[in-house]
Design a protein around this nucleic acid. Structure first.
Length: 1089
RNA sequence: GGGCCUGUAGCUCAGCUGGUUAGAGCGCUACACUGAUAAUGUAGAGGUCCGCGGUUCAAGUCCGCGCAGGCCCA
């Protein structure tokens, strides 16, 4: 015989494990995609994680978000491919390998060959692949792990090359320089990672100079610097546009010449002490400078002002020596005017680019433009006074030589160009290898000219729906507003090599877009004698193999590859094309699969993957790479601290899933807070989700199973006509459709937290605690009528609907529930909930739902009143009076519900009780109209008499006298409330007021006793462990008391309620003593076998 | 240093375009209810809506300045 299966004690982990095996056996994931192949594509991009580290708890969150929307769209009929991917290149991998092999970057190619090194990278980068896949599986994150894209694979790199060439062809890939931390003794640049090593920043004493830049005769701009050696490279001065500046008449402390200097007003106190005084002729006192403010400017006034070159060794090739505005200028140190040397500062370089200011550069022997300091850290010959001198004393072998900074200071003092020279202690970065100070120095780099597409990048970003919007507008938008060209090259080994070959004289270069093109070029090179033979067919495109390839230029010169590899972020940003080996294969798949409809990653990807996807798509295809993006926040520990291994507050995700089961974790993470808010992870919250949601749902299902198995309800009859449904059936069905509607909207708006909360509220409040509770009797009564059938069908409908709605978020239990129901009824042909169509909202009955809300309110208030007056619900009361009700024609059918639920005999409506009504102003309406008069108006309205309110309700207009001004009021201008009716037990909530009549007559009292008696017998049944279906015989010891009389009078009622086939009074009885209102009754229950 | 986010009950969170007495769940206390429930109902305790200033008839909500925590970038 068919039976609904169930677990009496819900074990979510066990459910998940069973379902996981079932999915494996049935290939449910593959089928869920296959059956949608005809559907509209919904494109999802998987952001590739790096498998060189173990997954953490926060990955559960992002995986859940990705999984739930792809499942949802699949159920909606879309064709949702989910290709896995692995990010495999990059600095973190290299550092990990260096640590493991106990080598440094300098050892690569020396102590270890590049081949071996890259092999070590390749083998370590997938170290945690199986851990990731196991987590995917246990969590139920459905994606295609069998055919992932892997960024180190040859096909992938070839696609990346293709994209680079496309950028190259659009002249968006160029070689320039960027200002980077540089260690002259070693000759290598330092990464920001290396600069963040502990001990890198050390306090040092440098010479700080306030230099005088001459603008007009006798007028100077004061700029402060702690790196005097950069002054010969000065080509601009920067001010803050909104900062206040002053011109001060004073004298130069070294030359004693009268001068006028410009500096920020906030900085004046730093250089001048005491009162202002017109004593600039007085040169007797050497310690105090005379000073007087003679003019004021804002920074904006100064912009464009020109000045003479401070140290004119080298002339710029282009515009220079003028004041520009920059947002990094502050007045907390120095003069509020910043010296700009574009070759020796990152900010300087950026502002110079923006303002089109030329850098001070010289031409070297090779004809290249180079900075005035060479790569060893020495001034070039053009800086005649200091030629060949190291700019930092620390580099100098001869420690007796005076530092260059000092010499420059001395020179400036003599030339009336220094206003102040002092020793200055500050924190300065040092090379972790040589322990000597670094320089900020221009190093060669390849760039993508993102700035050329800045406008389009911003414009297209506005078409992307960000969740939350603030990340798109704020963080990402600001990033785009302050865009600089993308520094693409890295002087590393384990990465996609830059496919550019150049002649030694740099006059000719080739960018290679494919293996075929490379082969063709090599063929030419073989003919020219630069290469011995053609490349092997399975050529590895990594270093060092590509480094060994020499090509031939158009005029027969050898061409060597630029040594850089590219930024690993380009790899992942290229995935829309490269995951399909586009354009070499799968053109159609790519074209139909671009752009993405949906992506989701952590907020830390804003300037990572989100940015690189957006840049590549915009620059090459001029469309955005994705239409919707859900940004998820961090997962913190329960106290709001970041989880980190050093604090020891990390949680093993696999352990977590094993402890609670994946559904519980997923539900908790989604329902607790929006994914974009940081999640304070607390296991107690997971336990609550289980108790509150899953156990309640499962209990509801268990209730259904209990009776459906007894009554053999297998949904074989046709659907009961709506007219034959009970009012509560129609209500819960309407509620379920409203839920379908709102849940669909929330999913569509990428609001998963709303979805989970709405489903939970429906299950707990509406279905379990209202519908099932009200209708229990319909399930356990013996008859098999259409009313019972309707109850079963309705509950079945609700359960199966919930299983579908929750399936994206809690895929295991949802499938368990769906299968448990559907395998018995076979109403639907699908073997899994993940193969069904997402439900569509049909008939809604908002009026009924509104009315039921009132019923719930009335019941709640009535219970409160009973409690207040200590009257048990079992005691029937004569009547309830209801005021302020909204009721349609169908209301009458809900009356029985109220009567049963609060145990009253009659309902009266008192809509016309003018005596107790009060009025409050309708603030939003009147506020707009009367504004400042609201206070007085409000008082006048509250003072309205019941008669006046009654008149308003009859449609009359009331003229309020407000200090002589007549203000017309209509009913819509006020809110009417009934707060109290003298002499009644009254409760009010909003517009509803109820009153209970608590007078008891004899009949009501007796009925109360009968119900109490039923209750006692039921409790006895329970203690005797009788089964629900067991029939019983009730024996009661004969007595003449009121209780026995009442029992006799209500014999039939009592028997029906307690499954008793017989109730008899016997003279003598060995039984249980039951105390009802002080009267002891002896009773015995016997099971009928 | 810059940008962005968050701050509401002991905890986790709602609170739409400003509008009646700021809500829910968990936890706590008491009582009730239970023929599915590990539940549930009712009541009580618990709030400087982070602070200060401003706009407004009216501010948790809008604006400014701070404070605290977080993220990203320097």
């Amino acid at each position: 015989m068919k039976r609904y299966k169930t677990q009496p004690q819900l074990n979510l982990l066990k459910v998940a494990q069973e379902i996981e095996l079932f999915w494996d056996a049935q290939e449910t994931f593959v089928r869920s995609i296959q059956q949608r192949e005809v559907g509209t594509p919904f494109v999802f991009f998987e952001g590739p994680p790096s498998a060189n580290g173990a997954p953490g708890v926060h990955h559960i969150l992002s995986m859940t978000v990705k999984d739930l929307f792809t499942r949802y769209k699949t159920m909606q009929g879309y064709y949702v491919r989910r290709k896995s991917g692995w990010d495999t290149h990059g600095l973190p991998v290299e550092l990990q390998v260096e640590k493991k092999l106990a080598i440094t970057k300098e050892d690569i190619g020396k102590k270890i060959s590049i081949v071996d090194y890259n092999q070590a990278c390749r083998s370590t980068v997938m170290a945690y692949k199986s851990a990731w896949e196991a987590l995917n599986k246990r969590l139920g994150y459905w994606k295609d792990n069998l055919n992932p894209y892997i960024t180190y694979e040859r096909d992938y790199i070839e696609s990346v090359w293709y994209l680079l060439k496309a950028l190259y062809n659009k002249k968006l890939l160029y070689k320039g320089y960027s200002i980077q931390p540089y260690s002259p003794p070693t000759g290598v640049g330092l990464s920001s990672h290396e600069l963040n090593q502990p001990g890198c920043y050390k306090p040092v004493k440098d010479i700080a100079i306030v230099a005088q830049f001459k603008s007009t005769e006798n007028e100077y701009l004061l700029a402060w610097t702690t790196t005097p050696w950069t002054l010969p490279a000065n080509s601009a001065l920067a001010v803050g546009a909104t900062i206040q500046y002053v011109k001060v008449a004073t004298i130069n402390p070294y030359t004693r010449l009268p001068i006028q200097v410009i500096l920020a007003e906030d900085a004046v106190q730093r250089f001048f002490t005491g009162e202002q005084a017109k004593c600039i002729d007085d040169q007797s006192d050497h310690s105090i400078l005379p000073w007087e403010i003679v003019a004021r400017y804002t920074g904006a006034d100064l912009v464009g002002l020109r000045y003479e070159q401070l140290l004119p060794y080298v002339q710029p090739k282009g515009e220079a020596f003028k004041v520009v505005a920059a947002d990094f200028v502050t007045t907390t140190e120095g003069t509020g005017i910043v010296h700009i040397a574009p070759t020796f500062g990152a900010d300087d370089y950026r502002i110079a680019q923006k303002e089109n200011i030329a850098a001070i550069m010289v031409t070297n022997a090779a004809g290249e433009s180079v900075p005035i300091v060479d790569r060893k850290g020495r001034f070039v010959p053009e800086i005649t006074d200091f030629a060949g001198r190291y700019v930092k004393a620390a580099y100098e072998e001869d420690a007796t030589l005076p530092p260059v900074d000092l010499l420059i200071a001395r020179k400036l003092k003599q030339e009336n160009k220094a206003f102040k020279v002092e020793k200055y202690e500050h924190s300065y970065p040092h090379c972790w290898r040589t322990h000597k100070p670094i320089l900020y120095y221009p190093l060669d780099a390849w760039f993508i000219k993102t700035t050329a597409y800045k406008e389009l990048l911003i414009e297209l970003n506005d078409t992307i729906q960000w969740k939350p919007a603030a990340v798109g507008k704020g963080r990402f938008g600001n990033w785009l507003e302050n865009l600089v060209d993308w520094n693409l090259s890295r002087e590393r080994y384990w990465g996609t090599p830059l496919p550019i070959w150049r002649t030694v004289d740099q006059k000719e270069e080739k960018c290679i877009s494919s293996i075929a093109e490379l082969m063709f070029e090599v063929e030419q090179a073989v003919l020219a004698g630069y290469m011995k033979e053609q490349l092997p067919a399975d050529i590895d495109l990594h270093r060092p193999y590509v480094d060994d390839i020499v090509l031939v230029s158009s005029n027969g010169l050898p061409m060597y590859r630029e040594t850089a590899v590219i930024d690993v972020w380009f790899d992942s940003g290229a995935m829309p094309c490269a995951q399909w080996h586009y354009p070499f294969e799968n053109q159609e798949i790519f074209e139909k699969g671009f752009p993405a409809d949906f992506i989701a990653e952590g907020v830390d990807q804003t300037r990572g993957w989100f940015f690189t996807l957006h840049v590549i798509a915009t620059l090459l295809f001029e469309i955005p790479a994705f239409k919707n993006v859900v940004v998820n926040g961090l997962v913190l520990d329960k106290y709001g601290n970041k989880m980190s291994k050093s604090i020891g507050n990390t949680i093993d995700p696999m352990e977590l899933l094993t402890q609670y089961g994946p559904d519980a974790i997923r539900w908790y993470m989604i329902s607790n807070a929006n994914p974009w808010d940081n999640l304070k992870f607390d296991a107690a919250g997971v336990a609550e989700a289980v108790r509150k949601f899953f156990i309640t749902l499962h209990s509801t299902y268990n209730f259904f199973v209990l009776y459906a198995n007894i009554d053999q309800f297998f949904f074989t009859k046709s659907v009961v006509a709506p007219s034959a449904l009970d009012e509560s059936d129609r209500w819960i069905i309407s509620r379920s459709h409203t839920l379908i509607k709102t849940v669909t909207q929330a999913y569509d708006h990428y609001e998963p937290t709303l979805v989970a909360r709405m489903i939970q509220d429906f299950v707990v409040d509406d279905l379990s605690n209202w519908y099932v509770r009200l209708n229990r009797k319909r399930f356990w009564k013996n008859s098999q009528d259409s009313n019972k059938e309707a109850a079963y069908q309705t509950l079945y409908h609700c359960l199966i609907t919930v299983s579908k709605l929750m399936a994206p978020i809690a895929p295991f239990y949802a499938d368990y529930l769906y299968q448990a129901l559907n395998q018995v009824t076979e109403k639907e042909k699908h073997h899994s909930v993940h193969l069904v169509d997402f439900p569509i909202a049909e008939a809604l009955d908002p009026i009924l739902e509104a009315e039921m809300r009132q019923v719930q309110k009335i019941v709640s208030m009535a219970h409160a009143l009973r409690k207040k007056h200590k009257i048990k619900v079992r005691q029937p009361l004569p009547s309830i009076r209801i005021i302020g009700l909204f009721a349609s024609t169908g209301w009458a059918r809900l009356e029985a519900l109220i009567k049963a639920e609060i145990n009253v005999k009659q309902i009266h409506y008192l809509d016309d009780t003018p005596n107790f009504k009060k009025a409050k102003p309708n603030f939003p309406l009147l506020g707009k109209r009367y504004g400042p008069k609201m206070k007085q108006l409000s008082e006048a309205i509250i003072a309205l008499t019941p008669a006046e309110i009654y008149a308003l309700e009859q449609g009359h207009i009331h003229l309020l006298d407000l200090h002589g001004e007549a203000i017309p009021l209509t009913l819509s201008d006020i809110w009417v409330v009934t707060e109290d009716i003298p002499g009644w037990c009254v409760a009010t909530e909003g517009e509803l007021t109820i009153a209970l009549d608590t007078t008891l007559d004899d009949a009501l009292q007796k009925e109360g006793i009968a119900r109490e008696w039923v209750h006692r017998i039921q409790q006895l049944r329970k203690t005797l462990n009788f089964d629900i279906q067991d029939n019983i015989i009730i024996d009661i010891q004969q007595n003449k008391n009121l209780i026995n009389q009442t029992i006799a009078a209500y014999k039939d009622y009592i028997c029906m309620e307690t499954q008793a086939v017989q109730l008899q009074f016997v003279p003598e009885l060995e039984g249980v003593e039951v105390d009802i209102e002080g009267v002891v009754v002896v009773v015995r229950l016997t099971k009928v076998e």
